[in-house]
């Protein structure tokens, strides 16, 4: 996964002189998660810019540079720190096109690491992508395989909009096939990662891998679960989700983010609105526990949905 993202960035740097990378420790250090390792020596300090720890001006100057004709990639080390740049992301990046009546474009990619599970406790384990996905004017993508990571990134560089490109800290090691020939993955297209007929497990980010694990366990019990990966939170591929539910008549929406106000709750609502007659029972929303993320291993495990919980949820709610 890490290599796929890195490849996407290298391609863009090589193909488009307007692309540059800016963020904390993206250069000399090689990126907090080593995605841009070696970039500084390869592309030089004009293209790969170590910035002060000042999230607002990192994103804000990315917005300005985008308005001025460049295509910046800014890296916010983790989504927790994006809160210090929320003004620039929500009040400015997302609004400038609209408020200028379409005069100004903001082609900006904000790469950020999201999610928990690494023992970093409450300030470093949040999944805030759903917040951003509620903002018109932003796009939010979240790849879960190397194929999607590269394909989505390629599409991001063709966009003229601000995009939040989410990476999960625990998915960098995920392996998978990436074709040599050019391809891309459109933004706003979900994908069925595993077909099944009995229940839809709708997820994004690391929860997709948890759903896949759960589907495997369910299969051993004769239950065929379909795993749908959102890939984009905004725009959301509602059609694909509805289509899946029409096949399976049951759905669990799984995410790491808090259940209260979670993005998954909105998906559940959409399914109730658009596929009510096809449902055998209410859509279940399985999110993270509504607690600040605890540090201790056992407590943290309790707070994030895992495959066993997904299996239990399917069995309890649908009697499968």
């Amino acid at each position: 996964m890490r290599e796929a993202i890195s490849q996407g960035l290298r391609e863009a740097l090589e193909q488009d002189p307007r692309v540059f990378i800016m963020g904390e420790d993206v250069g000399a250090y090689g990126g907090a998660y080593a995605v841009t390792k070696g970039f500084l020596t390869r592309y030089g300090p004009k293209r790969v810019r170590d910035a002060p720890i000042a999230e607002s001006v990192i994103v804000g100057s990315g917005v300005g540079a985008a308005m001025g004709g460049l295509h910046p990639v800014v890296e916010i080390m983790t989504i927790n720190f994006s809160l210090l740049a929320m003004d620039q992301i929500v009040n400015h990046a997302a609004k400038i096109r609209y408020m200028s009546g379409g005069q100004v474009q903001v082609p900006l990619i904000i790469r950020t690491v999201t999610g928990g599970g690494a023992g970093l406790a409450a300030t470093h384990s949040q999944s805030l992508e759903g917040w951003y996905a509620s903002v018109p004017g932003l796009k939010v993508v979240f790849p879960t395989t190397p194929y999607d990571a590269l394909g989505l990134l390629r599409t991001c560089f063709k966009e003229k909009n601000p995009i939040i490109y989410c990476e999960h800290a625990l998915l960098y090691g995920v392996r998978g096939q990436v074709p040599d020939d050019y391809y891309d993955v459109p933004i706003g297209q979900a994908e069925v990662k595993r077909p099944g007929e009995h229940v839809s497990l709708i997820a994004y980010g690391r929860a997709v891998h948890i759903a896949l694990q759960a589907a495997q366990e369910l299969a051993s019990k004769g239950v065929q679960a379909e795993v749908v990966d959102l890939r984009s939170l905004r725009p959301l591929d509602t059609e694909a989700l509805v289509a899946s539910v029409k096949r399976t008549h049951r759905a669990v929406v799984i995410e790491e983010a808090w259940e209260t106000g979670g993005f998954g709750a909105y998906i559940a609502y959409l399914l109730h609105r658009q596929a009510f007659d096809d449902l055998d029972g209410p859509v279940v929303h399985l999110g993270g526990a509504d607690v600040p993320m605890p540090y201790a291993r056992n407590l943290e495990r309790q707070a994030i949905p895992d495959a066993a919980r997904v299996v239990a949820t399917v069995r309890e709610n649908f009697g499968l």
């Binding site: 994103v59 100057s61 917005v63 004709g69």
Partner: peptide, 14 residues
């Protein structure tokens, strides 16, 4: 102010 800084970065870069 951050946005102005970014416009200036574009001007310098280009």
């Amino acid at each position: 102010l951050p946005i102005a800084t970014g416009l200036a970065l574009a001007s310098q870069y280009l």
